[in-house]
Computed example of a mutant assay.
Amino acid sequence: MARTSVPTQNDIAVPESVLKKQKAHQKTTDSQAADLKKKRQASREKRKVIAERAQKYNQEYLKAQRDVIDAKRAAKKDNSLFIPAESRLVFVVRIKGINKIDPKKRKTLQLLRLLQINNGVFVRLTKATSEMLKIVEPFVAYGYPNHKTVRELIYKRGYLKVNKQRLPITDNELIEENLGKFGVTCIEDIVHEIFTVGPNFKQVSNALWPFKLSSPTGGFRTRKFKHFIEGGDLGNREQFINQLVRQMN
């Protein structure tokens, strides 16, 4: 009895349309793989640049600290007094509500973007902003933040304002898309621009959503009616703002 042969896959004619579809699919797959490889390579190079830039910033901060220490030692050696330059950066936190507030103070709080209690913003200290802080002093606490405070606030509470939306800073691509035209491409660039009050401070500060802080651990010292130098919480705390921010962050 003759044995019948079973046709194999090679013996079956594949329609030309299927062959074209397979070829197109393979081409797409190869293209996607090549794009993914390029993207990974670009990401590695970008991370390297960011790391080098962060290291450069850290060296800059350390040099500034050493310069102050050396200046103090030199002044002490000469029996003189060293007075460091006044900080150009202040961090302002709103600690009181809007009860019994006149229109001028209300408008000034709006200009500072302090619309809610426990909202905080970075402000460049100028003659105009100094006058604004005097107007709203009964409603805010402010002072001179150090690098650690600036960095922790941006990393932990930082949000970008994109098309009137509050977006968390989850990756550097979001920063580059919105602030890349100012030379700010990563979160360390934001920290540096804010802390050093750089040339693009206004654009970067406005791109940051006002920081939403918590009530301070242990509460405020008083009912928030006294100035800080009187044992209260209002007004200029100078360097002591760092302690308050740590309690609220």
Rank of each mutant, 00 (worst) to 15 (best):
R66Q: 15
S5K: 15
T28Q: 11
R223K: 13
Y144C: 09
K21Y: 13
V93I: 14
K21H: 06
N118R: 12
I169Y: 04
A85W: 03
I135A: 08
E52I: 08
K63N: 14
V162L: 01
N119A: 07
Q239I: 07
A64E: 15
L89Q: 08
D78L: 11
R246V: 00
V197N: 12
V92N: 12
F228Y: 14
E86D: 14
I69W: 03
A13F: 09
A34I: 00
K77W: 03
D67R: 08
Q239S: 11
E16T: 13
T126K: 04
K105T: 15
Y144V: 06
R3W: 04
L89K: 11
Q41M: 08
N242Q: 07
K156T: 15
I175E: 09
R73E: 15
N249G: 11
V121I: 08
I187E: 10
K46P: 03
R106W: 04
A74E: 15
G219Q: 03
N178V: 11
I117V: 10
P138C: 01
R47Y: 09
N200D: 11
L89S: 09
D78V: 00
Q65D: 15
G158H: 08
K48Y: 07
N236H: 08
K224D: 01
L208H: 05
E131H: 10
E193T: 05
L114N: 01
R53V: 01
T185G: 13
K202S: 06
N206S: 09
N178R: 13
E16M: 10
Q239C: 03
N236A: 00
E176F: 00
M248H: 04
K77Y: 02
K134M: 02
P15N: 10
L111Y: 06
K72G: 01
F228L: 08
Q243H: 13
I241G: 03
F195C: 07
A34V: 03
E173K: 15
Q116R: 09
F82G: 07
K127G: 15
F182D: 05
P7V: 11
K96M: 01
R223I: 03
K224S: 01
L179I: 02
N10A: 11
Q239Y: 05
K181F: 05
L244Q: 04
A34H: 08
T29Y: 10
S31W: 12
F220S: 02
G235M: 01
